[in-house]
Design a protein around this nucleic acid. Sequence first.
DNA 1: CACACATGCAACCATTTGATTGCGAGTCAA
DNA 2: TTGACTCGCAATCAAATGGTTGCATGTGTG
Lengths: 122, 122
Amino acid sequence: MSTARERVAADIFFALGDRTRLSVVRKLGAGGARSATALSGGAKVSRQAIVKHLQVLEGAGLVTHEKRGREVLYALEPRRLEDARAFLDAVSAGWDRAIERLRQLVEQPEHPPGGAKARKER
Amino acid sequence: MSTARERVAADIFFALGDRTRLSVVRKLGAGGARSATALSGGAKVSRQAIVKHLQVLEGAGLVTHEKRGREVLYALEPRRLEDARAFLDAVSAGWDRAIERLRQLVEQPEHPPGGAKARKER
DNA sequence: CACACATGCAACCATTTGATTGCGAGTCAA
DNA sequence: TTGACTCGCAATCAAATGGTTGCATGTGTG
């Protein structure tokens, strides 16, 4: 039952599936922890928009926050990125196996398992 | 810069950031090419919903379609998954470097390497 | 204290998303 | 030809999303 893990993966991918959020993730990955105000500096959207995006990222577990005096620093959580990568790897691996099975069927059309799903020439 | 690539990555992640679509991707990865009707068999949504999701996936380059008689078979495009993984790797690598720089600053606050790069936090 | 700065909260808005339904058209087999 | 099956298109709709603005609160510094 990969349903639970699948939901987690969907949350992660959803969080990454926005240009503004992806830009935030890249900035955090490249430069370390920063505040929402600092992050909104180079962005084209307002600070509040950045804050909402950070909340989405944190909801997906990709980011954590820490109060530091009067400001709040957000930092990347690279383990979550690892989870996303694991999902991609799993799908890719399954696809490779499927391709291999298909090739074996094509190269050895001895006795198809059941239904005659053969293609017709017209 | 990386803006163009970032947009592509965002499209890929967006396409993967939906539970129904992610389920479709996993099914295609596990079982090979299938039609939209076949994919909607086990799903909780209608065929048209699946078709729309497949169009989103195809728009992100994650899936291709091929007409096969009266039905249309959709197949996974694993190279696009590779692109997504590459992005995750790049962010993780950048994060590792950032951590390393930070640790060096903490352990040796004497003379930072190089010049006055960008350690002006506000 | 007073001021500047950073955050938090809430209301509000336009657009997008995800999904449904109905119907017309193409394709295959009996 | 007829019937069964699959696909594509269009209209429609509720909810989510991304964004803004205004204002109140908290925090550090001179």
